[in-house]
Design a protein around this nucleic acid. Structure first.
Length: 966
RNA sequence: GCGGGGGUAACCGAGUUGGCCAAAGGUGCGGGACUUAAGAUCCCGUUCUUAGUGAUUCGCGGGUUCGAAUCCCGUCCCCCGCACCA
């Protein structure tokens, strides 16, 4: 390795801080640029994938600084929730896995000993994120503004935000069914399993409870398909279960013990008053709801006391489980006769056809069972069968005539109507349950609980939705595909529970302090708080002083400054300063976040801004970045970044292994921001080598004895580099870091190599090019750039400098055209040599005869006038004496030229007619001779004395000299 | 189900307001230079064919056009989000 990258990184990072480059201070003389990445949740250590998005933003803001902007790039963390609590609890009880995980990531015993409460855990990670990740990666963030959602001052801001949401009419209250842990309160059930240890794939299902009268008690069945009640023929009970009798609204219900527990969470006043064995219920007759028929209770093995109520109504026509279980009993009546039931009762249980479905007969359950080859209860394929028949029924089913007043309805409609009808008549109720077992991180089982007075933010509000959509049209949203999608997302966005009860870190809800504001809701308006956080961090204001009045003034400009000063004890000067800061920095220019934010965080972020802030403070841009994923497993599914497959080493370890700049370049160049990338150490290594190569190459240039005079190749190099600046600026207008890096780390490098190869070696040219080159590298590989900048002896810090505008006077189309011609010529020569397979002793080149160029010249003039056609061009040619001499050849060339020129731009063709190829080739002859190892001769096609044994000169055209090898 | 995205050469990945695209760049592979050798570095090549040409390519099948990887239709396949995880 060429360098001790680690100490180089530290050296320059210290310099930048020393120079205060990362500090954001209001400067009215400069345009501002404010950008954030969506701050990470503090849930433990991060991995190399997370750095992708963060790195983009550091590179983008560095670029903005070097193109004239005053930049604010603040960072913070999000710690609301129970992540900190559950991590703390595990540490407290010495959980082996957790301690191992911490230590593997570099946490010391002292660190662990210091984690005496959840906030200490959070504080520890706040330091890790800042020091081991962001500072280590060279971020120029304004550390003075760091904030965390659990800081008291941040809490004051959230308190204010919710007061404003209330004023805007966005806060509403209504009943809600939440997934709740008995110890921790509401928990998030989702695939990321942040709050839970098991069951992330579970969904909440809305069941209908059906009441079956038996004497003066009710057997309660839970169903997802209330529309099938007309097909009920019997009732299933698990003979192994001891059922509970519970009282609810003066009725006695029979349900499984688990269901009794769940129902207590969802319905008031439920008491357990007794029990009854499942096997004793077999043979009961009960009155089915809606159809008011007596049906018998049969035993069934598939009934699970943990699902629904542990009791099931049987609709064999449409439920595969019911069909196969009834079938099994009929084949083996001893299953019920042992309970003392008669054959007669069994004979009466005949499936009833109730739903007409496309592609199915009278009994869909039977059809699907036969199709899938299911022969007995308990077959795992029954699950597929159920899903299939439910799905098809829902979409294509129609209620048959037997279904009374619901006959003719589509299943989709009948379902809700019949449910409501039965609830209205007291024959049914509702119930919510999870589709699979969910266990909280604390170990307790999670259930669905009814919460009557849940607070919501009403993201469905039509006024704000409309305003937000309207505003989106003016925003810079990336990727563009998402900007089309965002309108749909906003329409879909509904009320969102914004506060929760239970054990939870966060800000108290201002209107009722039994509630704590939920994790997504306190992280939507926060970018503006970075403008204020610095004053709290520097103790210029205290949380107590950050009243509603304070925020109203500094953010909204409401109120009288002296009154506010008087009431808060903050001096008017400071208030004025903060107010001016807010006006200067806001709106936010870019909010960059991972694709997981597309449907929740970003819409919420937008709507909070729109509902609370005046129009001139609404955000200007959102950029979404995709992920770094683990390697694909053998099923082709992306795994989590894992230890065994690389990438899971702690971030500081990866930084040490590859070097920060190599990783930054990897992130920036490996793919566009908008695709997932598979983490692969070999790939990162190629970027490591790329950085090394460039570093060595630049150092060689600095060290070289460069004293050659300027030639055409110097003009070429400077022209190329100025063009590169222009293209980089164009790419970065769209924050296209991949575009920038391809130019700066590949194209420019290749140009330098070509310059050398062509014998270029002029000190002034080299320094001019290096200056540009190193500046172009600064946003992505700042440490390397800084090192090279100082080695080249340039003034100051490259991170503090300004990227020049491309110098149009140095961009030379003809210089670039000439070099392209030489390159094309070289590859033609190579190609001919390889095809012809002859021993070459001499290469002879012929440039085009003048008359051909005259034709093109005429054509170009006509293009400029916008009236180039084949006949016109031919006529114009024939009008010229010296062209007419070549008669036929002219008209055939004119035809080709006319077609070709019509398709091209003037800029492309101009150099063809302007370049004196004979001079160009004669200048390059020595180079070509050296490259090819044989003498090279150059003749003009008009040279009558030329050496041309095969009359090759006649095939030459401008831009393409003829070649003869011998 | 609802909504969205995508299929480009061995691989990763540009390119999608139609022409300058046989299709950037990188990697891999092959050859060469340098070297005692290896590595690194540099050069050439990497669909077929060919004195620098021509032909056929951008999931598959059609269509529009003077001209399509880029537009339209059909078709197959893959991926993502769908709520209290940020």
């Amino acid at each position: 390795m060429a360098y001790d990258y680690s100490s180089m990184e530290k050296k320059w990072q210290a310099k930048w801080v020393e120079e205060g480059l990362n500090r954001a201070e209001r400067d009215e003389s400069k345009p501002k640029f404010m950008a954030i990445f969506a701050y990470p949740g503090v849930t433990g250590y991060l991995h190399v994938g997370h750095l992708r998005g963060y790195t983009y933003l550091d590179a983008i803001t560095r670029y903005k600084r070097m193109t004239g902007y005053n930049v604010m790039f603040p960072v913070g963390t999000h710690a609301t929730g129970n992540g900190g609590i559950s991590l703390f609890k595990k540490i407290e009880k010495g959980d082996e896995k957790t301690l191992d995980y911490l230590k593997r990531n570099g946490c010391t015993d002292e660190d662990i000993a210091g984690m005496k409460d959840p906030m200490a855990v959070i504080d520890f990670f706040n330091q890790v994120y800042q020091n081991d990740y962001w500072r280590k990666f060279g971020f120029l963030s304004d550390w003075r503004r760091f904030t965390c959602t659990l800081y008291p001052d941040y809490g004051r801001f959230i308190d204010w935000q919710f007061r404003k949401l209330k004023e805007s009419g966005m806060l509403i209250q209504k009943p809600y069914y939440a997934s709740v842990c008995p110890n921790c309160g509401p928990v998030a059930v989702d695939a990321s399993e942040t709050d839970i240890s098991k069951g992330g794939k579970a969904e909440t299902q809305d069941y209908t409870l059906l009441k079956f009268r038996h004497g003066n008690e009710f057997l309660i069945a839970a169903t997802l398909r209330p529309e099938t009640v007309y097909g009920q023929v019997c009732f299933w009970v698990d003979p192994e279960t001891e059922y509970k009798k519970i009282t609810y609204k003066g009725e006695t219900w029979i349900v499984s013990p688990q269901a009794a527990e769940k129902l207590q969470l969802q319905k008031d006043g439920i008491e357990i008053v007794g029990s009854v064995a499942g096997k004793d219920m077999v043979g009961w007759m009960c009155e089915a709801p809606m159809i008011h028929r007596e049906i018998p209770v049969f035993p069934a093995s598939f009934v699970n006391p943990d699902v629904g109520t542990g009791l099931v109504t049987s609709v064999p026509s449409d439920a595969p489980d019911d069909w196969i279980s009834l079938d099994a009993i009929k084949k083996d009546p001893s299953m019920i006769t042992k309970y003392g039931l008669s054959q007669d009762i069994l004979d009466k249980a005949v499936p009833i056809s109730i739903i007409e479905m496309k592609g199915y007969g009278d009994f869909p359950a039977k059809d699907i069972i036969e199709k899938l080859g299911i022969t007995e209860p308990g077959d795992p394929k029954l699950i597929d069968a159920k899903h299939q028949v439910y799905k098809d029924g829902f979409h294509t089913g129609k209620m048959k005539d037997i279904c009374g007043e619901f006959a003719g309805l589509r299943v989709q409609e009948a379902q809700e109507k019949m449910k409501q009808a039965m609830i209205a008549s007291g024959e049914a109720d509702d119930f919510h349950d999870l589709t699979e077992e969910v266990v909280c991180r604390c170990g307790a089982r999670v259930h669905i609980k009814r919460i009557d007075d849940q607070w919501f933010i009403n993201y469905a509000d039509p006024k704000y939705t409309e305003m937000t959509k309207e505003h989106c049209k003016t925003m810079e949203l990336n990727p563009p595909e998402w900007s089309d999608n965002v309108y749909g997302v906003l329409d879909w966005f509904r009320e969102r529970a914004c506060a929760r009860l239970g054990n939870w870190l966060g800000t108290r809800f201002p209107f009722d302090d039994k509630w704590i504001i939920e994790a997504i809701s306190d992280s939507t308006l926060y970018p503006i708080y970075y403008i204020i956080s610095i004053y709290a961090n520097e103790k210029k204001i205290t949380p107590d002083q950050m009243t509603e009045e304070f925020f109203d003034y500094v953010i909204l400009g409401k109120g009288d400054i002296n009154a506010v000063a008087g009431n808060t004890g903050i001096c008017a000067e400071l208030l004025d300063q903060i107010r001016k800061d807010v006006l200067y920095w806001y709106p936010l220019d870019v909010n960059l976040g991972g694709k997981e934010h597309m449907t929740v965080h970003f819409p919420a972020f937008l709507m909070n801004h729109i509902a609370i802030l005046p129009k001139e403070m609404w955000p200007k841009g959102i950029t979404v970045n995709w992920y770094i994923t683990g390697k694909k497993d053998n099923k082709g599914e992306a795994t989590k970044i894992s230890k065994s497959k690389g990438g899971a080493q702690p971030i500081p370890g990866a930084a040490a292994k590859f070097g920060v700049d190599a990783m930054r370049l990897y992130y920036a160049n490996v793919a566009s921001m908008f695709v997932d990338v598979e983490w692969d150490e070999d790939t990162v290594n190629t970027y490591r080598q790329r950085v090394d190569k460039i570093m060595i190459s630049v150092q060689d240039l600095i060290a070289s004895e460069s004293d050659a005079p300027k030639t055409s190749i110097d003009a070429w190099l400077i022209s190329r580099f100025n063009n590169h600046i222009a293209n980089i600026r164009k790419a970065m207008d769209k924050n296209d870091l991949r575009g920038l890096t391809t130019i700066a780390y590949f194209d420019m490098f290749n140009d330098i190599k070509w310059y050398n190869r062509r014998g270029g070696n002029n000190r002034e040219t080299i320094l001019e090019a290096l200056k540009i080159w190193i500046q172009c590298m600064m946003p992505v590989t700042p440490h390397t750039a800084e090192e090279l900048w100082s080695q080249a002896g340039f003034e100051g810090l490259v991170s503090a400098g300004q990227l020049p505008e491309p110098d149009q006077s140095k961009i030379s189309a003809s210089a670039e055209y000439g070099e392209n011609l030489i390159r094309d010529l070289m590859s033609d020569i190579t190609e001919i040599r390889s095809i012809a397979k002859i021993d070459v002793n001499k290469i002879v080149l012929y440039t085009s005869a003048q008359w051909k160029k005259d034709v093109m010249s005429l054509a170009l003039d006509m293009v400029k006038d916008g009236k180039l056609t084949i006949p016109d061009l031919t006529k114009a040619c024939m009008a010229k004496e010296e062209l007419r001499k070549n008669g036929k050849a002219v008209s055939s060339l004119a035809q080709k030229v006319a077609v070709e020129f019509q398709r091209s731009s003037i800029e492309q063709k101009q150099p063809i007619v302007e370049t004196d190829e004979t001079v160009l080739l004669k200048d390059a002859a020595a180079f070509l001779s050296e490259e090819n190892g044989v003498p090279v001769e150059v003749y003009s096609g008009d040279d009558a004395d030329r050496y041309d044994p095969q009359d090759k000169a006649k095939v030459a055209v401008p831009g393409r000299p003829a070649i003869y090898l011998e």
